[in-house]
Amino acid sequence: MDPKLINWLAVIVAALSSFMVGGIWYSPKVFGNTWMKDTGLSQDEIRKGNKARAFGMTAFFSLIMSANLAAFLAAPTTTTGAQAGFLAGVWTFSAIAIHSLFELRSWRLIFINGGYSVVSLVLMGAILGAWR
């Protein structure tokens, strides 16, 4: 892997896209209320959480995911980038499912969290593939 071949601005934009997807995905109008119910978290507990840590670490790990995908991605097009993102999403969905099964989580929660991962990585891959 040659780091000179990576478009680092695209990596940052792709990482930020996961915030957009997450904001929509986990909103109360989409999966937020169901996610809270299945995790056993309340609005009060979420409000009391350390948002700086959660968002800071999310940004950090999103950058790692995006840079990792860019390093593996020899995708000259949006379509092949999205396909590579989908395949990476299948990996992460599988890891989420394995951990969640041992945590005795519901299939609904597995599909909410795993689905977010797949959609987020497809968008990341599409951005990285389009912006070569």
Rank of each mutant, 00 (worst) to 15 (best):
L123F: 07
G89T: 01
K51Y: 10
S120Y: 00
K37A: 12
K37H: 07
T92H: 05
I96S: 05
L63R: 04
K37C: 03
G49K: 06
T58C: 05
A10T: 05
T77W: 01
F86M: 07
A59V: 08
W8C: 10
N113Q: 12
A75E: 12
W25S: 02
K4M: 08
L41D: 06
V90C: 10
W107M: 15
V30K: 01
K29W: 14
A10H: 03
R132K: 13
S42H: 09
P76D: 14
S100E: 11
A70S: 08
G40A: 10
A75W: 03
G23P: 02
T92I: 10
F31D: 04
A67Q: 03
L104N: 12
F86P: 01
G56T: 04
G115W: 00
I110Y: 02
H99Q: 15
K37L: 09
Q83E: 09
L9K: 09
I127M: 07
G40L: 11
S27L: 07
R132W: 06
L123R: 01
A15K: 00
R47F: 12
A14F: 06
T80W: 07
A88S: 15
A14R: 04
T58K: 07
A59G: 14
F19I: 03
A71F: 11
R105Y: 00
A84C: 05
S106I: 12
V13I: 15
W35L: 01
L63G: 04
S27N: 10
Q83M: 09
T39W: 03
P3F: 12
D38E: 15
T77Y: 01
G32F: 08
Y116G: 03
F72I: 09
L16K: 07
F93R: 06
F72P: 02
K48E: 15
R132H: 11
T80I: 09
R47L: 12
L41V: 04
S106P: 11
V122W: 00
I96C: 03
M20R: 01
V90T: 06
S62I: 02
S66F: 01
S120A: 15
G114P: 02
M1Y: 10
E45C: 02
R53I: 12
N33E: 14
T92L: 10
A82F: 06
W8A: 13
L101E: 05
S106N: 13
S100Q: 14
F102Y: 14
Q43F: 13
W35G: 00
A52T: 13
V118H: 00
R108S: 11
R108I: 02
H99E: 13
L128H: 01
W131V: 08
T78E: 10
M65H: 11
I98M: 14
T80G: 08
F111T: 15
Q83P: 03
M36G: 05
V13W: 01
F93H: 07
I6N: 04
F86Q: 01
Q83F: 06
W8F: 15
V122D: 00
L101V: 08
A130K: 09
D38V: 03
W107V: 11
T79N: 06
R105V: 00
